[in-house]
C-alpha cells in the first residue's frame, strides 16, 4: 500500500493541489490531474486502480495513461513524499 510520508501535507487548490513536505520545508504543486491522482492515493488506491479509474474518467485506454501515472508516482516516491508501507 502506498502512503504519504509522515510530514507530508496535501491540499486541493484551484490549479490542482499543493504538497507541503514540512520536515524539509519543500513545497510542490501539481495540476488538476496530479491532484486527482493524489486524491486517489489518499484513498489508498493502488497504482493499477488509479490507472483504471483515470482511464475511465478521461475516456482513454489504460495503455495510453499508464506511463504518465507511473511516472508521477515514481516522482512522488523519489522526492520522498510517498512510500510503500510494506517496505
Amino acid at each position: 500500500m502506498m502512503q504519504f510520508a509522515e510530514h507530508v501535507q496535501v491540499r486541493p487548490e484551484k490549479f490542482g493541489s499543493v504538497i507541503f513536505e514540512t520536515l524539509c520545508e519543500k513545497v510542490f504543486v501539481t495540476n488538476k490531474t496530479g491532484a486527482e491522482i493524489l486524491r486517489l492515493l489518499k484513498q489508498h488506491k493502488t497504482p493499477e486502480e488509479i490507472i483504471a479509474q483515470l482511464a475511465h474518467d478521461y475516456g482513454c485506454s489504460i495503455d495510453l495513461i499508464r506511463n504518465d501515472v507511473e511516472e508521477f508516482i515514481t516522482n512522488l516516491t523519489n522526492h520522498a513524499l510517498l512510500k510503500n508501507a510494506h517496505k
Binding site: 519543500k26 510542490f28 504543486v29 490531474t33 495513461i65 504518465d68 501515472v69 516522482n75
Partner: peptide
C-alpha cells in the same frame, strides 16, 4: 495522453 506534473518550488 493525460497531462500531469509535479513541480517543486524552491
Amino acid at each position: 495522453m493525460i497531462e500531469n506534473e509535479l513541480r517543486p518550488l524552491s
